[in-house]
Structures are given as structure tokens and as C-alpha cells.
Write a protein that binds this DNA or RNA. Structure first.
Lengths: 339, 339
DNA sequence: CTGAAAGCGCTTACAG
DNA sequence: CTGAAAGCGCTTACAG
């Protein structure tokens, strides 16, 4: 078991002070006008011994951890996993590490997690907030900590935010269905107070109203098992056989819906069309492949990191509010008759 | 912006020493025989001020970070995401936090990540190793750091390990196909030197040989896009139309395979049976639903944490080797004729 | 029962 | 150009 080297060991060995070593280590050799010869010598020794400064000590002393805390609804979800992946990449390029965790959309759990991140002293927060978390977010901001909300916002709170144009994305997709001559378009959504759900619903309603069609809205409880959701959707289709298209507000709802459609032996897209909000890699593989409203994940990740970095590196006010809504992309596949 | 409280502020305010506050904070009041009255008073003040000790300072001083580093092949994969989720839960119950990252099966990237975790001074490592990482793992162990390998092992290295009984799981699944009267069973696997792939192949071969059938093995490159894989599998099925069952060594291969089967208008399970290694929640929703060899994820997570905790809390030697292989579960669905 | 003091490994304002 | 010293916020061996 090797003894860990410290900055003082190096200083002692080379007969110089810790200060000098520290300056060289942090690239301040020029600025502090330390001689090239000395700098060379120290760097060489460090290289040779493969010295790694203790990050804990560094953080304690600088007050920065170089860690970004990412809290998403569920890290195992396709969408969030992808976003996390991109964020990790971008953060890393800027010298930051990401630690992530799942809120499960549970307000209490999220409060716990914010505390945890706070204890670990992360330098910045990216959060997909459940409802009821306003006070905790406000508290973070009042402590001058950089926060960016993501995926959904908190209407009561004026904070930086990156999300999709949920309204426009849904509006365009439903208009596409209408153009393809579908008349009875059901909208299946999660029972939820969150803005992203609400905005999708509004987009649907606008398209329906503009075309003088009848809205058919089905709300599914967040706590449902897949089996129960499938049952409820089977029920809906039996009760309202005139439905000839279904718009699902999430990809998992779409999967349950497809199962219900299969159970009733309806054919996609002949008897019924399907569009899912949020793309998923299995949609391309499914038979028939499923038309989806996709979120430009890499673009969102880039916006998130940029806003956060600007705050963390004090290029903007920590409390400055910047909101970005990126446009959705409609990916046409075979679950809709495409006119 | 509120001033952060420190242990010294508390000590000053109550006119006692930092030592006493620290002891009380760490539940050592009894052990150090600090009076109940004082303990009460300190606890009350801490509660009231919502004081949180600085973890960085604590870690620097104790040398423990209470963080476990988890490195999986790809955190966005269904299987790994689920495992991570369970591990997080279990770690949390024991006062540990998990930080995770993806190796992408890239040896160089993995070396980087091990360095990163090492710099962050995680207390323990759970790693799904790519090949060629033996030296780095050996180095960790020689520094007396707890390491458990997961999902696949490194034959050249005698380390603690938790994984599936890949051999038995595949063997039983293929035997099931044979029992259901399938005769020309193809095995589709990833080109890979990893033990889990190798063991699955061996399980397949054993079942085939025992029943005097002809093996048909197709290897798919790890770098393939989905489209290329689909093409290759379509080619295979056209060249060898006698194939009446396909066993896929991973769930993503199965999805590509199903797409190939659909493109050729073959019917599952009448023309061709499908079994996937590694369950996926869409398999249950797919039409027809897909028979799969499932890994008992929660059980694996439990074993991992137990082995790691035993090492981290020095209940066993850090270098002690414990290997666990958990049995696979065959989940029969409708992609196989079930006799 | 309780406290003064050294130490964990860094950074940085200050002095020369 | 370079260093001595204080400080970040904890823990803990030692002394009484």
C-alpha cells in the first residue's frame, strides 16, 4: 500500500515552499513569476510521481467542488438517461463532474435529495422539479447557488429554465393527424399538475378547437401499474369505438396504449393511428414503427450546461433568469397514415 | 444570503469546546460521558439552527467520503439503470451515496474514470469491467480499496464478483426451445471477449450438442448501427431459411432481430421463435410478447452492496474474494410455442 | 465529564 | 521571484 503524496512532501523533497508548488500546480507559475527552471523541475517531479492533489482539501479551501447535481424524475427513463449522458459529456469538457439521482416525482424525496446535494456542496443544480418544491428552490437561489430547472417549470417561481415547446410540439402533431383525415382524436395524458403535461394538453385542445372537432381526453393516474393502464385504455376504446387516432402524452403511455390496441385486435394505422410524445428507440423497431414527437436531447443538454456554467463561473448573475424553449421534432413513421 | 454555521460557531455560542460539539454530533456523547443536560442543549440548538456539518471537512479529516463509485457499461441501458436504481436505494439505507458513470465498454475511458473516482476518493468501487483493465483494478486493490466486479469478470484476476449464471440461463432456455420442438436454433451474439458473452455461448453450445443439433452462431460487431445489424440478420435468415428459432444474447440484439423478422414477413412464433437474454419492459408490451431470460436485478444489487459494505466497514478483509453467481429466470411469453 | 491543540491537504493574502 | 503563516471545518489522541 503506497503512501499518498501530498503537496508538502513535494515541497520538502525539492526544498521549496508549499505555496510555490501550489501555484505551479494551478497554472499560476507565469502570473506569480516563478522561474521557468523551477516550474519545469516541479512539473517533472509531479509527473514522475504521478501526483494527484487531494480534491477534498482543495474544495474545502476554495469552497468549490466542481460538481453539478442533476436531479431527474427517473434516471432509468430513456429520455432522462440520454440527457444525463449528454450533460455528463459537456460537463466533463468543462472540468465538472455530474452526480445524478432520481426524484421519482416525489416531493418529499426531492427535498431530501436537495438537502443531500446541498450537504455535498455541489456547485450547481439542474432539477426537474416535482410540484410543491418551490420553497426549497427559492432557498437555494437565496443562498446564491446556481439553479436551472429542466423539462418542466414552476409557474410561481421566476427561475432559469430549459424545456421543450410542449405546446407547439403537440399542436403540430395533432394538426398532422387532422390533415391525414383522422377525426376522432383521443388525447391520453398523465394526471399531473406539471407544466409540461398541461402545455401538451393545451396544444391538443387548440388544434382540436381550430378544426371544430370534439376533444376526447383520458387521464391516467401516475400510480397505475401498466396492467391497469392497459385495462383503462381498452375500456376507453370499447366505449368510444369512433376513436380513430390516439395521441399519447408520454412514451410509456403509448406502449400501454399499443398493448390495449393489440388486445382489441385493432390494426395500426388502418383502424387507429398512434402518436407518442417523446421518442424512444424501440419505436423505430416496433411493427409498425411509431410516429413520435421527439425532444432534441443534445440541444437541450447544451442549453442547460451553458446557462449553468455562465452562473457558476459568474459570467452572469447567479440569480439572472434565462428561459429557453427548444422546438419539438415530429418524426413520421408508420403508425399514422401519412397523407 | 445566510452565513453558514460551523461547529466552532456553535461551540462559541454555547461556551463549550468544538470537541464536545463534535462528539455529540457523532453520537459519541454516551461513550465520552458527556452530561445528558449538555447533550440535550447542544442537540436542541443544532436542531433549531438546522445545522449541517460540512462533509468535505469531515471527509478530509476522517479519510472517508461515504461515496460508492459505480461504473457500468451504459447507464441508459435498461438493465444497468435498474441495477443502479436498486443500488442507490440500498447504499442510501447504509448512509452511503452512489455516483455513477458509463464506461461505454471503452478501456481508455474506463481508465480515465477510475482515475476520476480515485481523485474524488470514493470509498468503494462497483465496476463492470471492459477487457484490458486488469492493471488498474489490481492497482486499486493494492491500495487497499474495496472493489467488486459486476456482470462480467476478468479471468486473469481473482477478485470479488457478482454476476448471473449466464451459462445455466442460456442452457436452460435453449433446452426449452428444443423441448418445444425447434430444430434449427440460431445464436446471435455480440463480438466480444467478455466473459458473460462467452458463458452464454457455451451454454448454447452445450444444449445444442447434447441434443445432436447443428449450431448456428452469428456474431454482430459492437460498433454496428441498428440498421446494419438488422441488415445482417435479414441476410442470415435469407441464407439459412431453415432457421426456426433465434436466441439473442442481449435484449438490443433481439430488438434488431425482431425488426429483421418483420421485414421478411415471418411470423413469431409460428415461423420462427424468439428468446432474448436480459428482460426489458417493452418485451411484455410487444406483440407478440417476447420470451426472455431475466436477471434477478434486486438480488444482484443486494449481493453487490453486501460484499462491498463488508469490505468498506472492514468486516472482511478488503482483498478477500467472494464470488456470487445468481440463477437466471426464464420468463415464458408468446414469442415461443410453449409445449 | 470536558477542552486545548494538532492534523487532514490544500489556497492565498501578505510581506519581502 | 519566493515563502511563512493563517485559514477552510472538521476529528481525535491526549491530558486533566
Amino acid at each position: 500500500m503506497k503512501k499518498k503524496l501530498s503537496i508538502r512532501d513535494i515541497a520538502n523533497h525539492l526544498n521549496i515552499s508549499k505555496t510555490t508548488v501550489s501555484f505551479i500546480l494551478n497554472g499560476k507559475a507565469k502570473e506569480k513569476r516563478i522561474s521557468d527552471v523551477l516550474t519545469e523541475k516541479v512539473l517533472k517531479y509531479i509527473e514522475e510521481k504521478d501526483f494527484k492533489p487531494n480534491q477534498l482539501a482543495k474544495s474545502l479551501s476554495t469552497g468549490k467542488t466542481m460538481i453539478i447535481g442533476l436531479m431527474v424524475e427517473k434516471i432509468s427513463d430513456y429520455f432522462f438517461a440520454k440527457v444525463a449522458y449528454h450533460l455528463e459529456e459537456l460537463a466533463y469538457q468543462n472540468g465538472y463532474k455530474i452526480i445524478y439521482c432520481s426524484t421519482e416525482n416525489d416531493t418529499e424525496k426531492t427535498k431530501e435529495l436537495i438537502k443531500l446535494f446541498h450537504d455535498r456542496q455541489v456547485d450547481g443544480y439542474i432539477i426537474t422539479p416535482p410540484v410543491g418544491i418551490e420553497d426549497e428552490i427559492r432557498e437555494l437561489i437565496s443562498e446564491n447557488l446556481p439553479v436551472v430547472l429542466f423539462d418542466r417549470y414552476l409557474p410561481a417561481l421566476d427561475t432559469s429554465y430549459v424545456g421543450l415547446d410542449n405546446f407547439g410540439g403537440t399542436y403540430n402533431a395533432v394538426k398532422h393527424l387532422i390533415k391525414c383525415n383522422y377525426k376522432n382524436i383521443a388525447f391520453v395524458e398523465l394526471e399531473s399538475d406539471q407544466t409540461q403535461m398541461h402545455d401538451r394538453q393545451q396544444g391538443y385542445l387548440k388544434a382540436i378547437e381550430e378544426n371544430k372537432l370534439e376533444p376526447i381526453i383520458k387521464k391516467i393516474s401516475f400510480q397505475n401499474t401498466t396492467a391497469i393502464t392497459v385495462d383503462e385504455l381498452t375500456g376507453l376504446l370499447q366505449k368510444q369505438p369512433e376513436i380513430d387516432a390516439m395521441f399519447f402524452a408520454t412514451n410509456y403511455l403509448a406502449m400501454s396504449g399499443i398493448k390495449a390496441i393489440n388486445q382489441l385486435n385493432l390494426k395500426i394505422p388502418d383502424n387507429i393511428a398512434v402518436i407518442a410524445f417523446d421518442d424512444h428507440d424501440v419505436f423505430d423497431i416496433y411493427n409498425p414503427s411509431i410516429t413520435a414527437v421527439a425532444q432534441p436531447i443534445d440541444e437541450m443538454a447544451k442549453e442547460l450546461i451553458n446557462i449553468l456554467l455562465d452562473k457558476m463561473e459568474s459570467r452572469t448573475e447567479i440569480a439572472a433568469v434565462k428561459k429557453v424553449e427548444v422546438p419539438a421534432r415530429l418524426i413520421l413513421r408508420n403508425s399514422t397514415r401519412n397523407s
